[in-house]
Amino acid sequence: MNALLKHRLTWPVLALVLLLLLNQVFRADFLSVRLQDGHLYGSLIDILRNGAPTILIALGMTLVIASRGIDLSVGAVAAIAGAVSCTYIYTSPDPSSLQTAAVAVALAVVAGLVLGLWNGFLVSVVGIQPIIATLVLMTAGRGLAQLVTDGQIISVSNDSYQSIGAGFVLGLPISILIAAAAFLAAGLLTRRTALGTLIEAVGINPVASRLAGLNARTITMAVYVFSGLCAAVAGLMISSNVTAADANNAGLYIEMDAILAVVIGGTSLAGGRYSLVGTLIGALIIQTLTTTVYTLGIPPEVTLVFKALVVIIVCLLQSSRARTLLKQRRRPVTATSDVKVAI
């Protein structure tokens, strides 16, 4: 039992289950899933579909943090990807064709890869601190997206493009399948090959790993490129779901949700240790929290406070030091009889 309580995924899983049960108490049909017109619908499906962008970005963020870095630019990269794809479709001679949608997706993916490569170059080659290097793109990225869209909200009408965020395959939303494919690919690459061990080695001690013969620069650059790719695909999901590119609001604060998901999942911000399964659970907790806010009728102005409180509670429960201090406070103080009195 003690081993189970000490496991880093026990408390996140318990928090997710309690949140789902809390919603079930206030909505009797919350956990029900129905099949309608060959598609699955329900609150659980909505949590997975709406949380898919956060899951994607959190996966990339996990590997970046495991390498002792941080990527604050993922929200801006998502906005740029959506702006590039929607602008291309809008200005295309045939805006409703499958070919136009395919080119738009390719342009967004290339943009994400290039921006991720830029972050990786600044961190691994130039030697700029990750928080500063990615903060530059976080600040300038929205401006770049505004330049692409000319400061306007670009609306598009393309069924193929819209299916990325709102389509279904085999009854499941396409966004869920994309997030699942990315999770499986990341898991296979990092846990079934030596790549995961190399990332952990760089995160634990970059200098020692370099002296041991590892190409720390290449590994660091690779994780930032992967983060940029995940952010670009998330941007495609966000823009296709609303069939529009909003450079100001697309992916706004999603980097904060991704970092929270990574931390809840047990990944160390000091680098090295990471858990993709924990990140997945953390992202689902973040999305379920958002759903819980609407279910309980919590005012929008206190939504962020509510989410912060839940995250703090989960993180404290995960902390072995916090649990030890709590046990010490509960332990009764007994008087000792071996006190010597000097005369």
Rank of each mutant, 00 (worst) to 15 (best):
I199V: 11
I199A: 08
E200K: 12
V202R: 00
V202D: 04
G203Y: 01
I204S: 13
N205S: 15
N205K: 07
A208N: 11
S209I: 09
R210H: 15
L211Y: 15
L211V: 12
L214R: 10
A216C: 15
R217Y: 10
T218F: 12
T218G: 14
T218A: 13
T220S: 12
M221P: 02
M221Q: 11
A222E: 01
V223Q: 04
F226N: 02
F226I: 14
S227Q: 04
G228C: 11
A231K: 05
A231R: 00
A232H: 06
A234C: 14
G235W: 03
M237V: 13
M237N: 11
M237K: 12
I238C: 03
S240K: 06
S240H: 08
N241G: 15
N241P: 05
N241C: 09
V242C: 10
V242P: 06
A245G: 12
A245V: 08
D246M: 02
A247R: 05
N248V: 12
N248H: 10
N248L: 13
N249Y: 09
A250Q: 07
G251E: 03
L252Y: 04
L252D: 07
L252R: 09
Y253I: 13
I254Q: 06
E255Q: 06
D257W: 05
D257R: 06
A258R: 04
I259S: 02
I259E: 02
L260N: 12
A261L: 02
I264T: 06
I264L: 11
G265I: 02
T267M: 00
S268F: 03
S268C: 07
L269N: 10
L269C: 06
L269E: 08
A270F: 05
A270C: 04
A270Y: 08
G271A: 07
G271H: 04
G272F: 02
R273T: 10
R273S: 07
Y274C: 01
Y274P: 00
Y274L: 01
S275N: 11
L276R: 00
G278N: 04
G278M: 02
T279A: 05
T279R: 00
L280Q: 03
L280K: 01
I281R: 00
G282K: 03
G282R: 01
G282E: 03
L284Y: 05
I285F: 03
I286N: 02
T290I: 09
